[in-house]
């Protein structure tokens, strides 16, 4: 076997040895190692992906929260607005009602006064009648001798009559 002439024996043993090593290592080393590496890379990939998803979800959640808070604020504002409007309206209504009530009362009072007044006038009329009768009676009782005395008496009597 020379330096640059390949010996058949070594070619044979190299081929045999290499093929055996190739078979054994492929079966017992490379396949499990490569499978484990693939699996680990997959796990890392998955972890990175799920972290990304979680981050996105976080962001979504935050946005959602902000949205809810915003909506709540708007709702609160509208409610406050409505409440104040309602209050105003109520006050307004109360005022109106009060005015109406007042007017009614005045009306009633006026009517009462009117009634009382007419009643009083009726009363006066009756009184005047009674008085007139009394005067007439007195006059009748007296002597209608003197006109002047009669006149004087009438005047005195009329003076006594108080129309209220």
């Amino acid at each position: 076997m020379g330096l640059i002439t390949p010996g058949l024996g070594l070619v044979f043993w190299s081929a045999l040895g290499f093929l055996i090593v190739l078979f054994l290592l492929t079966k017992f080393a490379w396949k499990p190692i490569l499978a484990a590496l693939d699996e680990r890379e997959k796990i890392i990939d998955d972890a990175l992906k799920s972290a990304e998803i979680a981050r996105n979800e976080m962001a979504n959640l935050k946005a959602e929260n902000e949205r809810i808070i915003h909506e709540a604020k708007i709702e609160r504002d509208t409610m406050l607005l409505k409440a104040s409007e309602a209050a105003k309206q109520m006050i307004e209504e109360a005022k109106e009602k009060a005015q109406l009530e007042g007017a009614k009362m005045i009306e009633n009072a006026k009517a009462t006064i009117e009634t009382e007044k007419s009643a009083a006038i009726e009363d006066i009329k009756v009184q005047v009648g009674i008085l007139s009768l009394a005067v007439a009676e007195k006059l009748l009782k007296r002597n209608f001798a003197e006109d002047a005395a009669q006149q004087k008496l009438v005047e005195e009597l009329v003076k006594d009559i108080k129309l209220n």
């Binding site: 076997m1 330096l3 640059i4 002439t5 390949p6 010996g7 058949l8 024996g9 070594l10 070619v11 190299s14 081929a15 290499f18």
Partner: peptide
């Protein structure tokens, strides 16, 4: 560094 060995691998 033996030509027989490298030859084998080369043939593969």
């Amino acid at each position: 560094g033996n030509i027989a060995f490298t030859l084998t691998l080369g043939v593969f």
